[in-house]
Design a protein around this nucleic acid. Structure first.
Lengths: 200, 200, 200, 200
DNA sequence: CATGAATGAGACTTCATTCAT
DNA sequence: TATGAATGAAGTCTCATTCAT
């Protein structure tokens, strides 16, 4: 394949990226499939050539991104470092994900992880997987005596991940884009807030 | 009111209560107005006699309950007590609200406070009012030297309210009803987790 | 109900009657639900208020009419008369059905009894019920020695009902309406053709 | 043609044969062009290389087969034999056609000769050609005094061809394949039933 | 207050057909 | 000849809302 072909567009990708923008702007339930096609600059039917339904587009976006996050959490845990640093790495990764693609994160949080009746339920197992990984980090820190044991690992994971999601939700609700220094500051505050409650 | 009238039902209330159950079970977007009428045992059209739209039913449910909560927060703050006890009162009130009517709380959280594109945006001012009240408590505690100042009041409010909502979300996603001792335990953990991070 | 209310229209009936005309004119697969609504002079949605799907409209038309026919066959058999006269009564009834409502008969034959892949298969049991009733008449005539036994009752029923349907199909394919004397003549020919083959 | 070419497949033929199976299984209206391509094991677009439309595939199948049948009828008539034997030859040919390729016969009967609104109307002239050939045999038999004249040749042709088609339709509706002895028996019964009604 | 028939805009999805390679 | 991505018109069904009674 010639170098000039590098520019060849992957229409499937174009549609997924367009869907992120449309879902973020209008919400999953409020947008129409034609909005996605228009945003992507492709014909209506092509959306259905690549995806079997509007639902499946969101499923795909979620699973793609969530898989990346689960791997990032696993990596954060694998490294040899203090529990607080592991949590900092995780919080940092998620905040960076937001910096890099705030629309995608908005879609995933608003339309999936917090949608208890629809996609949240569908992907419950995946979502809980993240909680469990974080809980495992806490549990080990407790076994090592670094964290105190008054708070269960499950609850700690809930508090940690919940705080991150809440911070992101605040940004999501904001109309103005978030400043870089706010992003940096948030990383520190999240870890500080949670770890002070956990450390001996 | 005569004794015989005691049984007279307030149809408007019946419809609102039915809407809570239907919204909780099926979600706002997935249910139909006729589902609400059926659940309430009233005729289709009567829903529109009392409410101007499906949206307005949810608006009503939210504003009713949110007003109660804002007053409860204000009261918790008004009393003469330590910041930690004020936060405990607030967390306690919200958890008790869940114990008393989990379906209503599910609807409010899932369909409003986390719905960034629809009702969440509509009621943004109301929602932020709660954050601000909590933030004010923290700010005053910091001014009094009870809480340290590394964490801004806004962030502290976010973390506090966010943790509560996350705990409730965990229960909402669960299929089984929550046991009483879990509810009690959660109150303590929420306050403990957050205050350890805030107190000097 | 006042006499003036007699004119109150049963919209469900109006829709069914319109559907007959539309199905007859355009065919079930080629027409749109909006064509039926237009023909009936009602709003699109009302069709779905009374029927759950386009299919169900045809099902209803078929079952209504087929039930009438099965009862007519049973009555023809119940009367005390020669087998040939019973068959004449049945052929007469079906031909009269065509005279009375040729469009309905066209729809039932073209879209149901001959649609082996779709509605014909759905209503196979009902369709076979007619064959069996006719077969029973033949069988009894054979037992009584009026008809010879070389031809099985099942085959005789097939031939009899098949000839009727074929005659009607010929008319259906015709563009011109059938003259009354043709209808009368057909009754005699059908019975004559079949009974000569059956009688001793 | 070289020996090595013997294995060369005629893709057009492959597509036609696949279409027969797909039309028989799912019905013309219910199947998609892609189903035919899949069944044939060829690419989607190739269907449109050989045929201008989905309709044209069915037209081709019908005209191919119907032409064979018309020639068979003409041959049956050309031979020097009794009218009854001519009709026997015709019935035999059609029943043998069914034995040889039941799916093709199903498609032709269900989707064309009985589809009064669509293909049946398109090919009306071809279909009537068969009736007329049969009618001509009867007419000549009547002129020769072998058949009686009470029944018009047109009606006799209708009854004869109609009975054959009805017998085949019975088989088509059956889920089980037809046994050979049933096929043989049917040939005799068809001729016997009709000729007894026609012969002096 | 109460009923539920009636309205009609709108959304998803399908699929025959075209076309660039 | 062969491929399958791309197109977009069309159709079914849903459902919030209105209205006559």
């Amino acid at each position: 394949m010639a170098a000039s072909d590098t520019a060849a567009v992957d229409k499937r990708r174009v549609i997924l990226d367009a869907a992120v923008r449309v879902f973020a702007r209008q919400g999953f339930h409020t947008c129409r499939v034609s909005d996605i096609a228009d945003e992507a600059g492709v014909a209506y039917g092509l959306v259905y050539h690549y995806f079997s339904s509007k639902d499946q587009i969101l499923d795909t976006l979620f699973l793609e991104r969530w898989g990346v996050m689960l791997r990032a959490i696993a990596e954060a845990d694998a490294a040899e470092r203090a529990p607080r640093d592991k949590l900092r790495a995780i919080a940092g990764f998620i905040v960076e994900s937001y910096r890099h693609d705030p629309e995608l994160m908005k879609v995933i949080i608003v339309e999936v992880t917090r949608a208890a009746n629809t996609f949240g339920r569908t992907h419950l197992a995946q979502i809980r997987e993240a909680y469990e990984q974080i809980g495992a980090i806490v549990a080990r820190a407790q076994a090592d005596g670094v964290f105190r044991s008054e708070i269960t690992p499950e609850f700690a994971a809930l508090a940690f991940y919940g705080l991150i999601e809440q911070v992101l939700t605040g940004w999501i609700f904001d109309s103005a884009p978030v400043r870089d220094d706010e992003l940096e500051r948030a990383k520190g505050l999240i870890v500080e807030t949670i770890c002070r409650g956990l450390e001996r």
